[in-house]
């Protein structure tokens, strides 16, 4: 079994980074997760297959899979899993690991997340117009046309604010996030 930093296997690292992840050992390979997944047809591996691959130590293949990126966080798999494996949270763990290793293929997901978080780290609030503009301008300028129409409609209905709103105590939030990132950087994922 290929081992990662500190002599821990890929499987052990995945389990330890996920609250309640220990139950992954009990996976029956029943497919309740893959069967329940609303975006299952778009995934290159069903979650169940990823679990078998994790146990087989196939780190590169798992972290290059598009599966976690198609997770819509609906938690159907989690509540239906007969072994109470926190599948949705495992998907979060895999996304994080994939980013840390630079393994993900479809950059759209990561960049959207990054755009979103950029707003949050700057203002403390998310800002829908800024997000849409920044994300789609960098990704799919053509889409801006259709999105733009929708945005206009939203603005007419008073549902899209033209200006970002910020929290008052930004320095406090920045200090917290900086410290959290510092602690996170000290641990391997």
């Amino acid at each position: 079994m290929p081992e990662g930093p500190n002599g821990r296997t890929f499987y052990q690292r995945v389990v330890q980074a996920t609250p309640g992840g220990k139950s992954l050992a009990q996976c029956l390979q029943c497919g309740s997760c893959g069967g329940s997944c609303p975006s299952g047809p778009d995934m290159d591996h069903s979650p169940r297959q990823l679990f078998a691959m994790i146990m087989a130590g196939m780190e590169d293949e798992v972290l290059s899979s598009n599966t976690p990126w198609h997770c819509v966080s609906c938690y159907y798999c989690t509540v239906r899993c007969p072994q109470q494996i926190p599948i949705t949270d495992l998907m979060y763990t895999l996304k994080q690991m994939a980013i840390a290793r630079g393994k993900y293929r479809e950059s759209g997901h990561v960049d959207f997340s990054n755009s979103f978080i950029g707003m949050v780290e700057r203002f403390g609030r998310s800002f829908e117009l800024g997000l849409a503009t920044r994300y789609h301008l960098t990704h799919n300028p053509l889409k801006m046309v259709s999105k733009g129409t929708l945005g206009l409609q939203m603005m007419v209905k008073g549902r899209l604010s033209p200006l970002p709103e910020s929290i008052r105590n930004m320095p406090q939030l920045t200090a917290i996030l900086t410290e959290a990132k510092r602690i996170a950087a000290q641990q391997e994922v």
């Binding site: 309740s32 893959g34 069967g35 047809p41 069903s46």
Partner: peptide, 11 residues
């Protein structure tokens, strides 16, 4: 009946 056919790996 919605299911993952685990032998095919497909929903």
């Amino acid at each position: 009946i919605q299911v993952e056919d685990t032998l095919i790996g497909r929903q």
